[in-house]
Design a protein around this nucleic acid. Sequence first.
DNA 1: TGGCTATTTGGCAATATAACCAAGTAGCTA
DNA 2: TAGCTACTTGGTTATATTGCCAAATAGCCA
Lengths: 92, 92
Amino acid sequence: MINDIKYVQLTKVMKAMAHPTRLFILDMLNEKEHCVCELQEQINADMSTISKHLSVLRNAGLVDSRKVNNQVFYRLLCPCVLDFYTCIIKQK
Amino acid sequence: MINDIKYVQLTKVMKAMAHPTRLFILDMLNEKEHCVCELQEQINADMSTISKHLSVLRNAGLVDSRKVNNQVFYRLLCPCVLDFYTCIIKQK
DNA sequence: TGGCTATTTGGCAATATAACCAAGTAGCTA
DNA sequence: TAGCTACTTGGTTATATTGCCAAATAGCCA
């Protein structure tokens, strides 16, 4: 019951979103795709830290990436996750 | 920007939901309010563990509780969070 | 009051997460 | 090829989360 695929998958997505930097990245990617260095301009952290956050999001299936020359562009796969923002904020 | 109240609150809610047992509890509470011992019947864990999960959910503002005699009944405050389930599952 | 049930809290050990630095890889461009 | 830029990966340390047991609290009921 509690070990249903459903809960395992949902937990993975929730964990991926349970960090302010990653929520911020999702917001940025909702607007348009961005490369890692564009994300870094807005986020005060080491590029390796941002790269690791991105790989958490990708493992959860929330984003995808494509390489263009020596840059890597990330895009949001699941814009529905952002509807959640308004749902939560409204409650407060 | 990244330290906006928005992201802090959202992160709190996401962290609260980022555990299979807590997602399962939210599902159970969506059906109707339940006391801790009813939850325990469905969850293979120590009651103290379940109680701690419930306090995480309460701190995030997702559930509320009321005492009836020597039982404590929990109810879902924010049913909108469950819409998220279908959003995610649909993607897969 | 004493004992029972339901629940919460404290403490601890195991595990997971996060951030940085350093080093590695890949694709330019000179 | 050498050096540069963009990014990822490995390693380490600090911090947070989880789950159990034991003990505390609260409300019955005899």
